[in-house]
Structures are given as C-alpha cells and as structure tokens.
Design a binder for these strands. Structure first.
Length: 425
RNA sequence: GGAGAGAUGGCAGAGUUGGUUGAAUGCACCGGUCUUGAAAACCGGCAAGGAUUCACGUCCUUCCAGGGUUCGAAUCCCUGUCUCUCCGCCA
C-alpha cells in the first residue's frame, strides 16, 4: 500500500499515478477519512491521558488508605466516553484501511505512460540462429502435437478436473519435469538463488500482503472452510516468508527461487486464448523473488529479466521483451517487463514471464523492513519477482519450435541430460 | 478429533494476592573511560507504531491475536492462533 503521508502531502501526484494506471481514484475520500481519524485520535488520546493520570492517583490514595470513590465515579464516565470514541475511531480506521488496500502502487517515473497493452514498448527481440518467422513447413500447434505424440491429454484433464487442467503423459510429463529442474538448477547454481519449495495454499493475510486481495478475489480459488487459498503464483508464499519481519541490511539482497503449481480461476476469460495451454487453471512455474535495498531495486529488476531470458537463449527459443506501460501494469507493480516467446503455429507472441519491481508497496502491506547498518534505523525494503519461467506457454513455444516435418519433437540440448531422451515420437 | 502445558523486548529470562512495570536481570549491540592495540573491568545508551511540534519535547498504543471485567491488567475471564507433550486417526 501507499504511505498515507505521501497521499496526505502529495495528493495530486498520487491522483496522477492512479489515473495513469486506469484505476479508481479515491484520494479525496482517503484524505477525508484521514482527517477524521486524526481528529478522533487527538480527542481520544487526550481523554486517555487524563484517565491514566487519575487512575494512578487512585492507586496512591488507596495505598494511603484514603477514600477515592468520587474520583472513581468520575473516571467511570471518562472510561465510557473513551470506549465510545475508541469504537468510532476504529470504524474510521477500518474504513481508511480498506480504502488504502484498494489503492494501486504508483507507476515508477520511468514507466512509460499508456492506456493499454497496445502502448507497451518492445525493448528487445532475440531470435536463435537460423530462425525465420516464415515456417518452412506447416507447423502443428501444441494441442495437435500433444495428442499425436500422446504426451498431453487435455480431454481427460477436463474429465477429471474441468477444462484448463492439463494432464502430461509419458515423455510429456518427463519433459515438463526436466524443464522445471533445468530452470531451478540454473537459478540456484548460476545465479545464486536459494531454493524454496513453498506451501501451495496460503491464508488471506498472505494474499493481502502481496496485493492479490482484495482486488483479485474473483481470480482466486478459495477453500472457505479452512480460510486458505490455492496460490496463483509462488510469489505469494515466498514474499510472505518474511512478512512482519525485520531483516538486516547485511543480509540483503535475499534471493529465492521456487517451483510451484499455480492456480487461477481466470474468471470471465473463457473463449479468449483458451486453447490447450494458452489459458489454464493450473500450471507450473518457477518464480524468482528478491528482497533488496531500495537504492538497488532497479538494477535487480534488470537482473531478473536477464536471468529469465538467459534460459530462453539456452533453450534457443525466440523471445521479445516488452516494457509494460502504466495502464497495463498490475495492481502492485511500479515497473514491469513481460517476456514473450514465439509460437509459430499461433503465429504470435505468448507471455511466458513477467518481471516486476514492487518497490516498497508489498513491503508496506506485509510489513517487511530492514535495519540499516549505518544508523540502525528501520525502513521498508523493496520486493521484486519474476517468472523464470512459467512452463505452460513456454511448452507451447518449445513443442512448436522443436517439431520436425515428421511431427516429432527434438528435445533441446540443455534438457537432454534431464530427460534422458533426445527425441519424442 | 480428545487431554494437558506454554506464548513477555534482538535473544535468554523475571514478573500471575490487578496499582508510578514499556516492563527486573543476563547476553548481544552502540558510545565512552582504561590500554601501545585488543581483551577484561567500569560508566552511559539501546523497542516499535501513532498523534502533535520548526525543533527540544509531550502524549497515546503495544507483554501471541481479538473481545470482556475494572477508576486501573503482562497480571482476572472468554474466544481464536501457534508451539510442545500424551491418546486416537491417517498418509
């Protein structure tokens, strides 16, 4: 969430940021609630001070064996008044908090301003040697390939769970697992990340901490009976590892990488890109999460993008990087780069990764601070995360790019030692 | 699912006949004295959040969380969460 002081002192700046993000502007409501809160606080604290002081005197009087019944009666009234005011204060605070929870993070000043995905900026395109956008034979799409080679079974997935729950079969399952292990190993061994295997369900507080709740409630599955949510991304459990903690500056940056299954309801998106892996309710993802000092967070964001794209280059899969414009930025992000891989059968780019800097937005929500070495003061740190990468869309590109004219799949070289086979079909 | 024990500051650990205890003591940490330097010893400092103030400061809140009793609660009552021990059940 945003610092209430920032809103109080720079309302115009905040309004501009919200507007650039196409979100609802509640700044005036917030300012009114904030003012009301402070007035109430002043009032109630004055009364409490009086109450505390007099109550202490009661103690003294009683010790001295004197009568204090008059004062006690009077303080009874004050206590009631305090109770009423406290209640009112709490209502106002709840309201203020709720309002604040719905305010998005502001785009960083270097995030391009724009309305929609059309205004995103392509910052890089990388194509493997010999790659051509013109297919030299007719490419089967990943659904056909999966069926023909019996490595993906979308129909049975739909039978046992519902549409959007893919089943990987035989070498398809092995390939998926190889991809997961390859990516994890690379980040752990080459990029110095610490592996986390997190819980796949979290409580509501965790969801609020990273900003999924309250805004994205409809996009999440819920287990109401137990008050837990299947995670939409490992970002949630991993970032919340340090919720309500104070970290030492010398321990930063902290770099975690974790595998998780990801669960998304994708409410309201039926019919759009819904074929096969293009939009699913459950998929696998490797997620990188960083806890860093504020002054380094933009360098760290570049690193995340580099780490994610390094994998695609090693896999020899064509990709491009998009810098998201303000209007396409997610709720909690201040800056974000999407990485898209090429699908020759769909003839388009597919989002396989998203690397974001949340600055101190999540850290405030989740109360993740660090103690500075120099002056011992506490401050919110910055959090970032990036998919490195999501396997579903990546698998689409992989299968389609690596298919032979005979409809077989060549396993990318770097994955072969993980799969134990070089070809499917 | 049943029975019991516990949750105090960065850590350890006092405090449960309610009253100047935001909290003893030890350790850690920071500053100083001493020392050629270090150690030891000694002296001093050392929570977070909020309101207010140009500032110094003043005040409020916080002893797992949320309610309650009371003029006043770390201390009493209720509920919840977590940890530990035992029984049952299960992978």
């Amino acid at each position: 969430m945003l610092d209430i002081k920032l809103i109080r002192e720079n309302p115009e700046l905040v309004k501009q940021g919200i507007s650039n993000k196409n979100e609802k502007d509640t700044v005036d409501e917030i300012l009114a609630a904030d003012k009301e809160r402070r007035e109430l606080v002043a009032k109630v604290e004055e009364l409490k001070a009086k109450k505390n002081k007099v109550s202490q005197e009661v103690g003294k009087l009683k010790k001295a064996g004197e009568d204090a019944s008059d004062i006690i009666a009077e303080m009874g009234k004050v206590a009631n008044e305090v109770k009423e005011l406290d209640e009112k204060l709490r209502e106002v605070e709840d309201k203020l908090n709720e309002l604040l929870m719905w305010v998005p993070n502001l785009p960083n000043k270097n995030t391009p301003i724009g309305k929609s995905a059309d205004d995103n900026i392509e910052t890089k395109q990388w194509l493997p040697e010999g790659f051509n956008f013109e297919n030299d034979f007719e490419k089967m799409d990943h659904v056909e390939l999966g069926k023909k080679l019996n490595i993906l079974d979308f129909e049975r997935g739909a039978k046992i769970s519902g549409s959007g729950f893919p089943v990987y079969v035989g070498k398809g399952a092995t390939l998926e697992r190889a991809l997961i292990n390859y990516m994890l190993d690379l980040h752990i061994n080459e990029h110095g990340f610490t592996e986390i295997l997190p819980p796949f369900m979290v409580n509501a507080e965790s969801m609020r901490g990273t900003g999924q709740l309250p805004k994205m409630a409809d996009d999440m599955y819920t287990c109401e009976k137990d008050g837990v949510y299947p995670i939409p991304t490992a970002e949630v459990p991993i970032t919340n590892l340090h919720r309500k903690e104070v970290l030492e500056e010398k321990d930063l940056p902290i770099n975690y990488v974790g595998y998780s299954a990801c669960f998304r309801r994708e409410a309201g998106s039926y019919g759009k890109d819904s074929k096969g892996f293009l939009r699913v309710h459950q998929f696998n993802k490797i997620e990188m999460v960083k806890f860093v000092k504020p002054e380094t967070s933009y360098q760290e964001l570049d690193k995340l993008v580099d780490y994610a794209t390094e994998i695609l280059e090693k896999l020899k899969i064509p990709y491009r990087i998009l810098q998201l414009c303000s209007g396409d930025l997610s709720f909690a992000a201040a800056m974000c780069f999407d990485i898209e891989t090429w699908s020759p059968a769909e003839n388009k780019w597919l989002e396989a990764s998203s690397c974001s800097n949340f600055e101190d937005f999540q850290a405030r929500r989740a109360s993740i601070r660090y103690r500075k070495t120099e002056d011992k003061k506490l401050d919110f740190l910055h959090t970032l995360n990036g998919s490195g990468l999501a396997t579903s869309r990546l698998m689409v590109s992989l299968l389609e790019n690596y298919q032979t004219p005979e409809g077989k799949i060549i396993v990318p070289e770097v994955l072969q030692k993980y799969t134990g086979f070089k070809i499917i079909g």
